[in-house]
Design a protein around this nucleic acid. Structure first.
Lengths: 205, 205
DNA sequence: AGAAACTCTTGACAGTCGTCAAGACACCTA
DNA sequence: TAGGTGTCTTGACGACTGTCAAGAGTTTCT
């Protein structure tokens, strides 16, 4: 009984993985169910056995995608004992995922964009956005704690700043610009220097 | 002769406007030539009389869209004589366009996202991005000039920060959140306060 | 071993897509 | 008035889409 459920869930996950690969490669606009099936080892009909329809399939993938992203920097936060360690570890991870998984990131921005047109995805996208914001905030507050200060902007502003920088770097990376990752590191460093003060005075102006 | 050319160009512009309306409403993924034609006063066949194919049509629209955006804050920059005037004028325009034209803005982000998947749009999108960056930089440097300081970040970082904030506000605005525009004003104000110092010391740390 | 339940393939359906050719219509010129 | 040019509509084409029903194949249970 439970093994049946497990196998069912495993197949769903397998098909979801194929869907994510296809979406990352082609983008939302040009991803079809037959294309997804060709990226798996099954035929196109099986997708309607494991998922109600296309929206159900993609929604499930988006939810699964969330789990991958959100814990990316947790280990860095947990192990760093100095500001420099945390900053370097964070920048390393950031540059690494930019270079190694740009397809997954452009997929995320593609889906977030779709949520501006389609009500369907809005709730899931908003939930992921919120958890990404919390992730960024964990990093920044831990950094400020190690420095002995507090951030000068709110969590949502902090997230928007990082997101803007990362998105710009992503566009450049996918356009083939060699310096994209290095520029991202420099940009994040510069912004953090302005927004998380190094000295102990909390600078209320 | 020239009137023929003018009429031809006028029709192209008319169809391009219908295309932009359709794209802003439906997004790139769900915009078809027949839908565009229904948003104009012509039939679907005429689009291939004035444009080579769909890519040619959309590329032309993207280029035309550029002209609308880039001059948005020029008058504010030209007329403001105090930092407060410039800041208020800029924030007003920013909040106004967020509330009044959110469809056009989500279209821009949609097209920029497509450029991460389709080589075709990449050059045009990059050109628009660069001119938007210059626009932001004109505003910021003029502001710094009026204050008597210089910005602490590069033009591309500055643009990425504003873009991140605006995009976040846009998602919220389109989700129906009432405070999106007000939050954007506050966020931009807070970031500018950190990145363009009010005092005369250029804060090289 | 036979029956039942689960899994997957195949093929078709109604619809939409971009594209284009054929022709109708309007307008200007000789 | 006849012919030519520019403009626009209509209808069709092949290809592609999401969806689903019919059935074959496989596994599990009694």
């Amino acid at each position: 009984m439970t093994e049946r459920v497990d196998k069912f869930a495993a197949r769903r996950a397998e098909l979801a993985a194929a869907t994510l690969r296809t979406l990352a490669e082609l983008g939302y606009a040009r991803t079809s169910l037959r294309e997804i099936a060709q990226n798996s080892e099954f035929s196109h009909g099986v997708l309607h056995y494991y998922f109600r329809d296309k929206v159900d399939l993609i929604t499930h993938c988006v939810r699964e995608y969330k789990a991958i992203c959100v814990t990316r920097y947790d280990q860095v936060v947990a192990t760093a004992t100095t500001p420099a360690q945390l900053q370097e570890g964070f920048l390393d991870k950031l540059a690494q995922t930019l270079v190694e998984e740009p397809q997954m990131h452009r997929l995320w921005y593609d889906l977030r964009n779709q949520s501006m047109f389609e009500e369907t995805f809005r709730a899931d996208v908003a939930a992921i956005d919120a958890s990404l914001e919390r992730m960024v905030w964990r990093v920044v507050t831990r950094f400020a704690e190690l420095v002995g200060t507090t951030p000068l902007v709110t969590p949502s502003v902090m997230y928007a700043l990082f997101d803007g920088l990362f998105q710009q770097a992503l566009v450049r990376q996918l356009a083939g610009e060699a310096g994209a990752a290095a520029d991202l590191r420099a940009a994040v460093t510069a912004v953090v220097a302005q927004v998380v003060p190094l000295d102990r005075e909390p600078a209320l102006r």
